[in-house]
C-alpha cells in the first residue's frame, strides 16, 4: 500500500520509512504541515501517519482541513502528547487512531493494517463470527468449537470477539488493552499474556489445529492458516 508520513523529526521519519519499505509498502514523507497537506490533497494514499507537532501547520489542522474537504483517507496520529484528553482531541479532529511515542514498529504496522481493513470492509451488523470450526454467537453469547460449547468469562468472550473481528491481523497488547478493557494507561502488560494463555487453554488446547497465534515482537493473531 501507499502511505504518507508527515513527521518533522528526522530519526523518527527515517525509522518509519525504512520499516514500511521492509514491510513491502511505499511511502512519501512530508517535513512540515504545508507540504503534508499539499501531498495529501494531490496524491491518493491508503493511510496517512501524522505527527501532531509539525512546523508551519499543526497536525490536527491538517486532518481537519482534509476532513472538511471530504477526504476520508484513514489517519493514524502519532504524537508525544500521551494524555487521554489529547487522544480524544485527536480523534475528534478526524483522526482514526492515536499512537503515542515511543512506540514499537510492530504496533504501528498492526494499527495501520487494521485501519486499512476497517476502511475496506465497513463492518455490517453481524450476529455470528466464525473462523474455521470456531463459532461465536453474539446474541446468545455462545461459543462453540467443532460443535462443542466453550464456556468463557465476560472478558474472555470480549477478547475472543476482538480477535475474531480481525481475522489474520496482528493485534497488539495495547490494542487489546484499549479495545477490550478500555484501559488507556499502561498496566502490567504481562497480564494480557496471562489472559491470552487462559483463553488459548479453552479455545485451542483440546484441538490439533491452533487458531490463536503469538506474533513475536508484536502481539497476537487469530488465523485458520497454519504456518
Amino acid at each position: 500500500m501507499k502511505l504518507l508520513v508527515i513527521e518533522d523529526d528526522e530519526s523518527h521519519a527515517q525509522f518509519i520509512l525504512t520499516g514500511l519499505r521492509e514491510a513491502g509498502h511505499t511511502a512519501d514523507r512530508a517535513k512540515d504541515g504545508m507540504d503534508g497537506l499539499f501531498l495529501a490533497t494531490e496524491e491518493k494514499y491508503d493511510v496517512m501517519i501524522v505527527d501532531r507537532m509539525v512546523p508551519k501547520l499543526d497536525g490536527l489542522a491538517i486532518i481537519q482541513a482534509l476532513r472538511a474537504s471530504g477526504n476520508k483517507t484513514p489517519v493514524l496520529i502519532l504524537s508525544s502528547l500521551a494524555k487521554v484528553e489529547e487522544r480524544i482531541k485527536g480523534l475528534k479532529a478526524g483522526g482514526d487512531d492515536y499512537l503515542t511515542k515511543p512506540f514499537e514498529f510492530g504496533e504501528l504496522l498492526a494499527r495501520i493494517e487494521a485501519l486499512v481493513r476497517r476502511g475496506n470492509s465497513e463492518q455490517s451488523e453481524q450476529t455470528t463470527l466464525t473462523l474455521d470450526d470456531l463459532e461465536m454467537n453474539l446474541l446468545t453469547r455462545e461459543v462453540k468449537r467443532a460443535g462443542t460449547a466453550i464456556d468463557l468469562q465476560n472478558k474472555e468472550f470480549r477478547l475472543l470477539e476482538f480477535l475474531l473481528r480481525r481475522p489474520d491481523q496482528v493485534v497488539t497488547r495495547t490494542m487489546l488493552l484499549e479495545g477490550v478493557w478500555d484501559f488507556h494507561f499502561s498496566p502490567n502488560t504481562n497480564l494480557i499474556d496471562a489472559q491470552m494463555s487462559k483463553l488459548r487453554q479453552k479455545v485451542d488446547k483440546d484441538f490439533k489445529k491452533q487458531l490463536i497465534h503469538t506474533v513475536r515482537g508484536a502481539g497476537y493473531k487469530i488465523s485458520a492458516k497454519q504456518d
Binding site: 523529526d9 530519526s11 523518527h12 525509522f15 507537532m53 508525544s80 502528547l81 500521551a82 494524555k83 489529547e86 503515542t100 511515542k101 515511543p102 512506540f103 514499537e104 514498529f105
Partner: peptide, 21 residues
C-alpha cells in the same frame, strides 16, 4: 506538563528507536 511530556518523549522515543534498530 504538556511541554515536559513532549520534550521528554521525543528524545526518549528517538533513543528507543536506535536501541530497537
Amino acid at each position: 506538563t504538556n511541554a515536559i511530556a513532549h520534550d521528554m518523549r521525543t528524545p526518549l522515543s528517538r533513543h528507543r528507536l536506535e536501541l530497537r534498530a
